[in-house]
Design a protein around this nucleic acid. Structure first.
Lengths: 158, 158
DNA sequence: GATACAGTACTCGGATAGGACATGTCCGAGTGCTACGGG
DNA sequence: CCCGTAGCACTCGGACATGTCCTATCCGAGTACTGTATC
């Protein structure tokens, strides 16, 4: 799995703490000392998925497109990794003895079904947890986290 | 995820139907029209993991190292994909504000914990299902599957 | 006929290329701010 | 003092290199079989 997922999740948390203030990729990258241009690329993926909105120009940047309660971890993972499952059945049974080309073995092959069951368990777990859940957990353990984040992210007064 | 996982699972099933007769990689590959040398590589990984045993020379090949009841899908996946998790925390919080280099954020970072929860659900589902489960399901749905497999895999009498 | 032995064909195992995707970087299009000049 | 406007700095967005891992292949080491010659 791409490490961009980790970056995206932490960045979304920071965006949540930034309230609705637009934060440029440069600042989100500086927060964890990440390559700014590359993080920008991941944030673009989040924008395409409708998780964040982007604004160009000065005072521009990214902000959450909806409240953290309505953003699941699965949303973020899918935005970065893509829709397709990790295990994708190649339907090799079609070339086996008795294989039919008019059968969709992604549904009928029992190996595929078993792997899909595991994949669904994974997705269900990710879909259960929202960004707000993690945010609340962090805040209850580190009450000053929001203040620290805002301090780092807010544009310094000129 | 590597497609070698799919090949390995189907090949293990075929090895189960071959009973304890050694089957060379060439025949397992011919079963689904796969590249023989590359499948051999995957089978080597299974051998290193102790899932199958290998025998060189004529009448040699691979056979299951233990009964299908004692081989979980997780065993096969780990043998091919490796031990490490799909999501591996890079501990970017170490470079963030208040980050400590003496803290293992793979355990303490809540993002990492949430991702790990999902990963554990996935692994648990894979560890629950054994090769025997799939084998029995296939046999109950296609009673002639074992015979077809043995027909294809057994060395023709000379 | 039984046996020893050399040759052979077959198999795994690891070393070796090729290609696809993740990673990382750079520059252009667009936008809002800012400062200046005029009314 | 207020307003319009030109310039500018900043941001995203996509196009362009680089590295790493999956995919695929080939050849050598080892082994069991087979056939033959000998006793």
């Amino acid at each position: 799995m791409s490490e961009g997922v980790e970056w995206a999740l932490h960045s979304c948390l920071n965006l949540a703490w930034a309230e609705q203030q637009a934060v440029p990729a440069r600042k989100l990258a500086a927060f964890y000392d990440l390559p700014p241009a590359y993080l920008n690329r991941q944030l673009q993926a989040l924008a395409r998925a409708g998780i964040v909105t982007s604004t160009s120009g000065p005072r521009g940047g990214f902000r959450l497109a909806r409240s953290p309660e309505q953003i699941t971890l699965l949303d973020v993972v899918v935005a970065i990794e893509g829709e397709q499952d990790a295990f994708r059945c190649q339907q090799i049974m079609r070339d086996g003895p008795g294989g039919r080309s008019d059968v969709d073995y992604r549904k009928h092959c029992l190996v595929s079904q078993a792997m899909r069951r595991a994949e669904l368990a994974w997705r269900r777990e990710l879909a259960t947890q929202t960004l707000a859940d993690i945010k609340d957990s962090v805040e209850s353990r580190h009450p000053d986290a929001p203040r620290v984040a805002r301090n780092q992210l807010d544009t310094p007064a000129r």
